[in-house]
Design a protein around this nucleic acid. Structure first.
Length: 735
RNA sequence: GGACGAUUAGCUCAGUGGUAGAGCAUCCGCUUCACAUGCGGAAGGCCGCAGGUUCAAAUCCUGCAUCGUCCACCA
């Protein structure tokens, strides 16, 4: 067998992937005699092609999967595609915009169909890209987050939550993005520091018209909705005023001065105007003091009729100008200061968030969070790196009810109907009710809202397993029917994902998993960082510094890219990648290739016929001693590193052993040893043995080249693929 | 305002109680029959600063500085 002088990944990779696929060895089987090892792949957004961040998770998860497979575990790496509700609709709207269109030109059904097709196209592309990068996942189990059986699971969970009183519909203050026309969860609101102004406004006392209480605000237009002024009860300046009334300027409404300890005496004047309808804190204070709620701004950012005849219909900004002018004329604007403050904006389009009262569905999370805290504290779930546990616990401890309804069409529509006759709310497991169970009314209207994507993807670990074909009745958790897969593979072993979605996704999966199945969804959470370019800049299309993983794989090979992504990185930290780094690993691939060429050129048929040539190995020379000892140490180190999720360390250990110990030292020594008839055959055995062991160690990191070489090795008891060879171990200890 | 992380060779980063490591870059020498995508050799660091614990600290503790990230209702 002759190998070309240089390693040519393009000639190898596609062929090798096909070999894995055709072998059927990627498919998991429920096998009670083996220990399961399952990773649920974070479902990839179906709204674009893979970027280098995907390549990171593919590499890390494939390393774990391939390692455990070779260790003899029954592995399942379950791939998925995410409809990614809001995110996809945003991406799709950008596409429309390029064509000079908007979402308003289409009916909900039309839009849904268009986005559906868009996602289908993307998933095909993405699937091909996964294969290019060497993902050894089980394609027969691939799921889409909008598959019917997945939606069924989500509906069952929701219906159960409704019966358990965990979800409720309420008119509460929510974050509204006027651009996207939907509510957003607190996590989807980003805070940005902006240069604004702080306006000091005089509110005249009703009793003594020439006296004022001065309030400071950044949003004077909201004063039209004020229903109180609040001061801190400990604030001596205002003690006498508590309980008194003021006349709201311009409007003349009489409102009361109340005391609330949430008011900071040091800020502004220490007196705050309270607008329950348009500020989250004011809403809370309003609830506690049972203040009236007056909506003065609508979802389009326009003043409502409740703002008063003069202001109704004005845009917010115009209204602000008008009010300021009028206050000035009345000498009620005491002063204006420049003021830098943080403004809530939509995390996607940076449009300032409008805080509004709106009827939405909420999930009560406190009780769920408590359990999610306990499993982390008791180390049922462990974080890698460990410090993320603190971040996680801090978030969980301060969690607030979660707004799970969205006013977008691309998503899972909520299984809720309202009876027109009696006004009852009917929640089902997805089936459409014919009559109202309370009044037998037949006019039922379905809720238009969809779920926050994270509400359904938070159920992904169990949903993707339950929604497999091998169904069976279950007494598990809240589901009537699950699957053999679920029983065998759940809880899963590791959740590996980006640290940027710790709260969005990981935290929710833990809460929802515990609720729905009574079990943790995974034992370990491994978080990786962002991928940065060599100048430590975030990669973005606008900066033009994006590394396209597929382009790189095309030029240097997928193995080189994968190795470069783990080399010199550590868990949780940002990953700095550069072309130089990838080239270095391409050279490593070439080194492996040429070492193999040397061995095969010097490895006559005598070795091939020995069934277990490794048993016949003897230590004759000091070089023999060094290499075998080195190999043993390498195996030990790599094992330890992989157990502790130190993939970067393992990669470097293998790299160093192969290049500097095996090639530089032993192969050089072997040239002389093979001239000596007494040592020749033994040296050949050691060469082959060391190479085979190295290939096994390298395989999880660089699967293509290691598999290709394996297929060329003259071995008697050869497995169909290196992928399912046994992980190397040393039988005899070498001192 | 709070939390977390970082600070190690020119660059990008590993290491985390026991004489400082890798990749890239640099310098010198090699057309040695696996590989010039290579081989041999060299240079380069009071491991952010100041204290403390220890026989021993880059590594543990305390404080500080600088950078970064996340969280947060300062109107």
């Amino acid at each position: 067998m002759k190998l070309s002088k240089r390693y040519q990944p393009k000639e190898v990779e596609e062929k090798i992937y096909k070999r894995w696929e055709d072998s059927g060895l990627l498919q998991a089987k429920v096998n009670k005699s083996k220990k399961p090892f399952c990773i649920i792949m974070p479902p990839v957004n179906a709204n674009g092609s893979l970027h280098v961040g995907h390549a990171v998770f593919i590499t890390l998860q494939d390393i774990m999967i391939r390692h455990q497979r070779m260790r003899g575990k029954e592995v399942l790496w379950l791939p998925g595609v995410d409809h990614a509700g809001f995110e996809t609709q945003v991406v799709f709207e950008k596409h429309l915009k390029k064509q000079g269109k908007t979402r308003f030109q289409y009916s909900a059904q039309q839009l849904y169909k268009m986005i559906w097709d868009f996602c289908q196209e993307n998933s095909k592309l993405v699937k091909h890209q996964f294969k290019t990068l060497g993902c050894s996942c089980d394609w027969s189990r691939e799921k889409f987050t909008l598959d019917k059986d997945i939606i069924d699971v989500v509906y069952q969970t929701f219906e159960r939550m409704y019966r358990d009183g965990l979800v409720y519909r309420g008119k509460r203050i929510i974050n509204w993005c006027p651009n996207h026309g939907t509510s957003l969860s607190d996590l989807e609101v980003k805070h940005k520091t902006v240069a604004g102004k702080l306006y000091y406004i005089r509110y005249p006392l009703v009793k003594e018209k020439d006296k004022y209480i001065v309030v400071a605000t950044t949003r004077p237009e909201t004063m039209l909705g004020d229903t109180a002024v609040a001061v801190n009860p400990k604030d001596k300046r205002y003690k006498a005023l508590i309980g008194q009334t003021v006349s709201l300027p311009l409007i003349g409404r009489t409102i009361t001065i109340i005391a609330d300890k949430r008011i900071d005496t040091a800020f502004g004047t220490g007196a705050v105007k309270i607008t329950p309808a348009h500020d989250p804190l004011d809403f809370e204070i309003g609830e506690d003091h049972q203040l009236e709620i007056i909506n003065v701004i609508n979802k389009q950012g326009v003043m409502t009729h409740q703002a008063g005849k003069i202001y109704a219909g004005l845009e917010e900004g115009a209204c602000r100008d008008k009010i300021l002018q009028e206050l000035k004329q009345l000498n009620l604007l005491e002063k204006t200061e420049d003021y830098r403050h943080s403004l809530g904006v939509c995390y996607k389009c940076e449009t300032p968030i409008e805080y509004l009262i709106s009827e939405q569905w909420f999930l009560r999370v406190k009780a769920l969070a408590e359990k999610a805290i306990t499993v982390a504290q008791r180390k049922k779930i462990e974080f890698i790196p460990a410090y993320f546990k603190k971040t996680y616990l801090h978030w969980m401890k301060n969690i607030k009810d979660w707004n799970i309804s969205r006013q977008i069409i691309w998503g899972i529509r909520m299984p809720i109907w309202y009876c027109k006759k009696c006004g009852a709310t009917i929640v089902t497991r997805g089936e459409e009710p014919q009559t109202c169970p309370y009044c037998k009314g037949t006019e039922l209207v379905r809720e238009k809202d969809t779920f926050d994507t994270w509400f359904s993807s938070g159920q992904w670990p169990f949903a993707s397993l339950i929604a497999q074909k091998n169904k069976r009745k279950s007494k598990h958790g809240i589901f009537e029917e699950t699957s053999q897969d679920f029983h065998y593979f759940y809880p899963t072993a590791v959740m590996e994902t980006g640290r940027d979605i710790l709260f969005f996704w990981v935290a929710r999966m833990i809460m929802l998993g515990l609720y729905a199945t009574g079990k943790i969804p995974f034992r370990h959470v491994y978080l990786h960082g962002l991928v940065l370019d060599k100048d430590k800049q975030k990669m973005s299309k606008s900066k033009g510094n994006v590394i396209d993983p597929l382009g790189v794989a095309e030029i240097y090979g997928s193995d080189a890219l994968r190795m470069a992504l783990v080399f010199g990185t550590s868990p949780g930290r940002d990953i700095v990648i550069s072309e130089e780094k990838i080239i270095a690993q391409k050279k490593f691939a070439n080194k492996i290739w040429n070492a193999t060429r040397f061995i095969l050129l010097n490895n006559p048929a005598t070795i091939e016929n020995k069934t277990d040539f490794s048993q016949a190995i003897k230590i004759i020379s000091p070089a023999d001693q060094r290499i075998l000892k080195g190999l043993q140490k390498t195996i030990d180190t790599v094992n330890k590193d992989l157990e502790q999720f130190k993939f970067h360390e393992a990669a470097q250990t293998i790299y160093h052993f192969f290049w500097h110990q095996f090639c530089d030292d032993y192969i050089e020594a072997s040239k002389k040893q093979m001239d000596d008839p007494k040592e020749k055959e033994n040296t050949q055995r050691i060469l082959l043995y060391s190479l085979l062991s190295s290939l096994k160690l390298i395989h999880p990191f660089m699967p293509f080249i290691s598999e290709e070489i394996y297929q060329h090795l003259p071995l008697k008891n050869k497995k169909k693929c290196l992928m399912v060879e046994s992980w190397p171990q040393f039988k005899k200890k070498i001192k």
